[in-house]
Nucleic acid binder design. Sequence first.
DNA 1: CGTCCGTTTCCGTCAGACGGAAACTCACCC
DNA 2: GGGTGAGTTTCCGTCTGACGGAAACGGACG
Lengths: 247, 247
Amino acid sequence: MAADPRPSVTSRVLAILGAFDEHRPRLTLTELAQAADLPVSTAHRLVGELRAWDAVERDADGRYVVGRRLWKLGTLAPVARELREASLPAMQDLYEATHENVQIAVREGTTALYVERIHGKASVPVLSRPGVPLPLHATGVGKVLLAYAPREVVEQCVENLQPITRYTITERGRMLRELAAVRRLGYARTVEEMGYGTCSLAVPVLGPDDEVVASLALVTSTVRRDLVKFAPALRVAAASITRRMSL
Amino acid sequence: MAADPRPSVTSRVLAILGAFDEHRPRLTLTELAQAADLPVSTAHRLVGELRAWDAVERDADGRYVVGRRLWKLGTLAPVARELREASLPAMQDLYEATHENVQIAVREGTTALYVERIHGKASVPVLSRPGVPLPLHATGVGKVLLAYAPREVVEQCVENLQPITRYTITERGRMLRELAAVRRLGYARTVEEMGYGTCSLAVPVLGPDDEVVASLALVTSTVRRDLVKFAPALRVAAASITRRMSL
DNA sequence: CGTCCGTTTCCGTCAGACGGAAACTCACCC
DNA sequence: GGGTGAGTTTCCGTCTGACGGAAACGGACG
């Protein structure tokens, strides 16, 4: 992002692709050039090649968007091919049992990256969408992922607990106790820490070597205070995901 | 793919990314170099840059796989962001009503590209997976997409109807009549044309300008001969997708 | 201990990327 | 109608950073 000494062609191409994010999925050539810190003519040439390959497309009003080919490519990534595929049936079952939001996320650095979410028309609206990262300390999945994260990640997160609602945990000591509780109980709860009116219950999902690879959660409206009763169901679902992943 | 006159750096990078597909999602450096038709040392250098950006990663046994960052990028593509997001609630409802496979696909050239699929543990196993293309002429969604495709696409498909099962339609005339029937009835059926033991019912999904942008289908085991009774439910779901897309 | 196969590093040569500038397009407004 | 401006596309002379052969490296196998 900052000043790299040797701008290679590859880095420029990647800078162009990196200009797209969840807040700016549609960009004009000029915006693209600015975001990638390139002269327009250079951006134009590179984007031309990307377009020829269908890595980017132009939509109705001439803006550039991420192309189908990149979407297809993305489906080959292990998060999609392995984790997502292994999780869906179990998530589906959970959804049918509860009719609440069901979501699964992995840790990416100091954020929780949502991989998939199941929700019907009736479920509470939530912020998570596949591919979008949310903070670790204010979400159910996040607290689980943090509870089993390496020491240095915990340190880093715990030093900088940004408040999001009035109920977000922002004291270092309290968060550390919370994480210890998560490890002891095997699940994490949140109550309006990420958004008013929603609470969640999350459990870890283990990989083949018993390390925590993801976290699975139910997210409901605050009215349902009895969320903990679903902990066993979540654990069963998590175990089923683990089993399917190691096939 | 063949011999392009000027191999630009960008084209080489894209050739490397293009080496991954659903049959070969994990590749060694040497395989990658072969597939992209590059000397290993060149591939090594480029892959190094891709890796630094998380466009590719190395898995446990050192093979290269598509990285998370590309997956995230892919979620920003319109198929994922708009079509998929708009479809999921309706697909979820259909699934709950039927407990059969529910799938949605778009046309990509002369293939049907699956965008999403909902299935529980109990549903019939099917071949479709998000990101994977299947033939237009042997699938329910495919026949719908073909029925509303431009003339030249129809010509091209109809000239080359590869048999897949004993029941696959391979005669040009019969397929053309079938497509006319799809337009007349507003749905397509398949009975064991793609795989023994499965049949499907598909309807078109319209975009904001009344053009067919996708196709939505139910796929069940052949035992359920009464699939047509779900046509109204499918149409309602398709209409709901159209509405949500134009928000 | 030697062989094989894939990976990584090195560096002299030169092909291809660079980007400033100018032409172009289109929407909007006076 | 024609002037303005923001965004897009084309062009081409300069020179930088990509190229890839070769050789070293690593580790699995017998």
